[in-house]
Design a binder for these strands. Structure first.
Lengths: 197, 197
DNA sequence: ACCTGAACACCGTTCAAGT
DNA sequence: ACCTGAACACCGTTCAAGT
């Protein structure tokens, strides 16, 4: 069922329609409603399926930072691999695969010696950072022609007295997403480490 | 135009339809297409309108951390005030109000002595954290009946041998969103400060 | 320069009916 | 237990036509 879903999603979110999905499965569109209550259920399923792709790194108790970094990298990579994931994020993530990864993250932090409230807040900060980062990156990259970038740069340059700092430092020019992401993780991990009891 | 928009959005995203919007404006649905090319344009406009609500704090050069914290708090508050904003985040944010806030954030960091690449990465980390945090919170809160929370807790407790850490530490039980968010900001700011040249 | 109506090609979902 | 067809109440968007 869900397996047939990803196939479909490899051609965009907006095209994910009950009718089209049914066609892909070689059945009538209304048949799906026997297996599923509503289209939202389908979206929940496919979202959790995405998280199944995020592999859990080996736990290395001597290097909790490395373990967490590996987890976050995989998480981000999975989301970037499926740009439509951004559109599905506005829903509670309660599927078994999501929960398994959340459990893992908390476990690593607990093993590293963290306790609530810092353990909770650390997981919260890391998860939300990954989500936000993947979301904005896919937003910039998925917009059809991908000339969004050039347009944005022009727009910004034309208004350079309105946005002096952004222009002076070449805000838009850089698109070193990976490096920026990695530095962000470092900031958060540094801050978390400093809060360790 | 956009002014009439927010009125409408106060009744949910899914109900934001060209036909309904036109009705609200006392005109035919197709009339809108003279003012706007596509529904996406409307969404872009309303998203930027949201950022207009985020007020820029007074710049206090002696307290860059306080200034940034104030900006992020306002940003987050605006998004939480309009839960539909989560659904609109999958698009590049290029409206004048968004850019003004981005400029502000970069300016504060520059004034504090940061230079690229850390200035860029710091802004990136902070922005993505806010976006992710607001997104997940609205996801949990907007789901209709709001008993999502109770259901989630039950579900988690029933599977307590599968998710021992989440249960042991009361992952779901807490919902102190504000405190968690604030701690996250502290982590990032600590990490950023440590990277200051 | 602005607004309208009719029309096209879609949607998600329900429901009685079939096997 | 599973699948189907017809039907309902919607969508975004186009386009010729009006003022």
């Amino acid at each position: 069922m869900k397996t047939a879903l990803e196939l479909l999603d490899e051609e965009g979110v907006e095209r994910l329609t009950m009718r089209r999905l049914a066609e892909r499965l070689g059945t009538g569109s209304t048949t799906l409603y026997w297996h599923v209550d509503t289209k939202n259920d389908v979206l929940d399923l496919v979202l959790d399926q995405l998280f199944a792709e995020v592999e859990l790194p080996r736990k290395d108790p001597s290097d909790w930072r490395g373990t967490i970094t590996a987890l976050l990298d995989g998480w981000r990579a999975a989301m970037l691999r499926h740009p439509w994931s951004a559109a599905l994020l506005g829903r509670p993530m309660l599927g078994p695969n999501v929960l398994a990864r959340t459990e893992f993250l908390h476990a690593v932090l607990a093993d590293a010696g963290f306790t609530p409230p810092h353990m909770t807040s650390a997981a919260y900060a890391l998860a939300n950072y990954v989500i936000g980062a993947a979301l904005t990156q896919t937003a910039w990259q998925s917009r059809d022609g991908s000339d969004t970038y050039a347009t944005a740069n022009q727009h910004l340059h034309r208004q350079r007295d309105r946005y002096p700092v952004l222009n002076a430092r070449g805000y838009m020019v850089q698109d070193d997403w990976d490096a920026n992401f990695r530095r962000g993780v470092t900031y958060i991990l540094d801050g978390i480490a400093a809060a360790k009891p």
